[in-house]
Amino acid sequence: MAAGAPKQRPGVIGAIWPHLILLPASLVMLLPIAWLVVSAFKSADDFFSSLFFPVDETGALALDRLTLDNFRRLFDDVGIASAIANSFFLSCTLAIFASLACAAAGYALARLRFRGAAPLMVVTLALLVVPPPLLLAPTYELFHRLGLLDNYLAILLPGLAPAFGVFLFRQATIQSVPRELLEAARIDGMGEIGIFANIALPLLRPMVGAFAMITFLMMWNNFIVPQVLLHSPEKMPLAVAVANMKGVYYQDYGMQMAATLLSVAPVLVLFLMLQRDFVSGLASGAVKG
């Protein structure tokens, strides 16, 4: 520390001027979210007469005009509660199963000796370049043949073990699951599956957390797959249900913003609670990969 310390102390100007860029940039980044939050509580009239909080005829702040009406109509008339439940169900289910499947495969590819390991690894890397839209039409055809259109299995099954997850867990295993520990457990007579579940998985916990959260997010924000493979309006997750509101309530800005706020709030709250693990997990997988 001391040896590498800079020779010249940055002055007051040096300490302040990055903030002159970063502070306005941060405000710009926050503006749409702040605006979204306020808009969700505004009536249609106030939408036209004020940018942020509603004002009365004299131009004075009129906070009493903020209303829960948009949310009330979302639950009563649009039935958004079921879309919220659908989104939670799909995202949680996929996050749990995809984390387990990817952790198992990534661990096996990194630490177990079997003849398929090398070719599987090549396949995993090759799959990273397949663009998802290419699979859209044939996936639809496949589930049509299987009779699984409008069934949640069609949404969940293809996402169960994404190649990039297997790759991330392979890297994490190499980094944080020492071979000696596994050998010791083998000598103690522990079974291979037991070793994975009781020794490797706990060591992989940070990556499990980060990957579960990424998977949750990707499912929560996924639009095209449920839009194509589901038909019944009552089965739709938020992403599709909210997007479809634009067609029906295209002038009802307050309600659109209320629905959007309901959709992004859980994700933002979850992220703020877990952000430390999330960002570091993401960065470790991304940069060292």
């Binding site: 590819l109 079997f114 398929g116 799959l127 290419l134 699979l135 099954l157 169960l160 297997v166």
Partner: peptide, 26 residues
């Protein structure tokens, strides 16, 4: 070890074969 390895990669291998490779071929 071999048997366990195949059991652990099975979900990934099966899902990839059915829902990626088959659609790619189609």
């Amino acid at each position: 070890e071999r048997r366990a390895a195949w059991a652990l990669v099975a979900p990934f291998a099966i899902v990839t074969a059915v829902f990626i490779f088959y659609p790619l071929y189609r």
